[in-house]
């Protein structure tokens, strides 16, 4: 269900914990699975559960508790913009509005061509870099002026 490379990554995480605590690797395993699948369909979560010897319900609970897991399909790129107060004071909400205008979608929506999903984020611990946004959970983009946002959208195919 997951590629050998993905399983290797998960094994590396499992090895960090005591042998009887494989469940500790569930967050990492779900992140790895999501990187590969784009989101977390039930059968993927079931696979992770079986792989780590967990009850499937315990895995669903984790996946639904943490905001960065995609429980539904998302666009090819997920853009998460921080609009919390420290960022808002330095242009965070303007950046969000600019993206909404450019993409013609609101938060939690995906463009018709399936390229982008837009999300509103909470503090990413990078407020000094405001406006900040996260591309596909992994890449933090700092000081996102409108020009830089436009360029980012053009670059992300």
């Amino acid at each position: 269900m997951l590629s050998p490379e993905a399983l290797k990554k998960i094994d590396r995480e499992v090895a960090k914990f005591p042998p009887d605590q494989k469940q500790s690797a569930v967050m990492a395993a779900l992140a790895v699975a999501q990187d590969e699948k784009g989101w977390l369909p039930t059968e993927t979560m079931d696979f992770v559960a079986a792989y780590l010897g967990m009850a499937p319900i315990a895995v669903y609970e984790v996946a639904s508790f943490y905001a960065m897991y995609n429980l539904k399909p998302v666009g090819r790129h997920k853009l998460t913009v921080c609009t919390n107060l420290p960022c808002a004071l330095s242009g965070g909400t303007h950046a969000a509005a600019h993206l909404q205008n450019r993409l013609g979608i609101g938060f939690n929506e995906t463009t018709a061509d399936g390229r982008f999903t837009l999300k509103e984020g909470e503090c990413m611990g990078a407020c000094g870099d405001a406006p900040v946004l996260l591309v596909d959970n992994k890449r933090m983009c700092s000081w996102m002026s409108n020009d830089k946002l436009d360029k980012l959208l053009d670059d992300l195919k």
Binding site: C123, G125, C127
Partner: peptide
């Protein structure tokens, strides 16, 4: 797990 809005030192 630095997530307190306004905090970005641990990063």
């Amino acid at each position: 797990d630095e997530g307190e809005p306004g905090t970005f030192k641990d990063r």
